[in-house]
């Protein structure tokens, strides 16, 4: 979707503010919001792509102005309301309906296990890769509705395949609850091909799925 979250290359933003850069959490509220978000998601059936897409659907001013983990928490809450794990009425009233208590939240032991367990997004490919390292590829010039991971600044752009990463789950499908493996490539784009004012020989690398490219 075309949304304010797609920030790469957008202009008008000022200097990078390095405040609180050496603290893991910049405030107590930040730490609590992070923990609430990850603990409430727990082992529930909220796929990562649906989480990202739900965040993308925040009110745009909220997305651009609310703190990062505060956004995670609001997103988790929106997913829980959507899935019927809590009701909007309960959230508005601040009172849980005692008859619909959730029986089995994530426990501290589950947390310790999750912290040691990387998630593998690679799957067996169902087709041969269409592109090889060194190939020239061109990305789709249109933005699609729904969730997708081709940033606007790299649409309709020509780049070179730097690496083939095997088949990974396609986020566009994941945000619709489907598990679709698709070949994933790291593609290098000359910065001067993406942004007209660039004068140096810099390269921007993106990890892009096969369906993001125009077939020749």
């Amino acid at each position: 979707m075309d949304g304010v979250f797609d920030l790469g290359g957008k202009q008008g933003f000022g200097p990078v503010d390095r405040a609180h850069e050496d603290e893991p959490y910049h405030s107590e509220a930040d730490a609590r919001a992070y923990a609430l978000s990850v603990a409430a998601r727990g082992e529930r059936a909220y796929p990562i792509d649906w989480f990202r897409h739900t965040r993308e659907n925040m009110v745009p001013t909220d997305y651009l102005t609310r703190p990062y983990f505060d956004q995670w928490l609001q997103t988790t809450l929106a997913m829980a309301i959507d899935a019927g794990d809590i009701s909007l009425d309960e959230v508005i009233s601040g009172k849980a309906d005692a008859l619909s208590r959730t029986p089995d939240p994530m426990r501290a032991d589950d947390v310790r296990k999750a912290l040691k367990t990387p998630v593998n997004f690679e799957r067996e490919a169902t087709s041969a890769p269409a592109f090889a390292v060194g190939d020239t590829v061109r990305t789709d010039h249109q933005g699609k509705p729904g969730h997708s991971r081709l940033p606007a600044y790299a649409r309709g752009a020509t780049g070179t395949v730097h690496a083939h990463r095997g088949a990974h789950l396609l986020p566009d499908a994941g945000a619709q609850g489907a598990h679709v493996p698709e070949h994933l490539y790291t593609v290098g784009f000359a910065a001067r091909d993406l942004f007209p004012e660039v004068e140096t020989n810099d390269t921007i690398y993106l990890d892009l799925w096969e369906s993001y490219f125009v077939r020749r």
Partner: peptide
């Protein structure tokens, strides 16, 4: 609210932080 609802266990919050 989330603790009252049973969606989060306070001990899990501490473990994440």
């Amino acid at each position: 609210l989330l603790v009252e609802k049973g969606l989060v266990d306070p001990a899990a919050l501490d473990a994440w932080i």
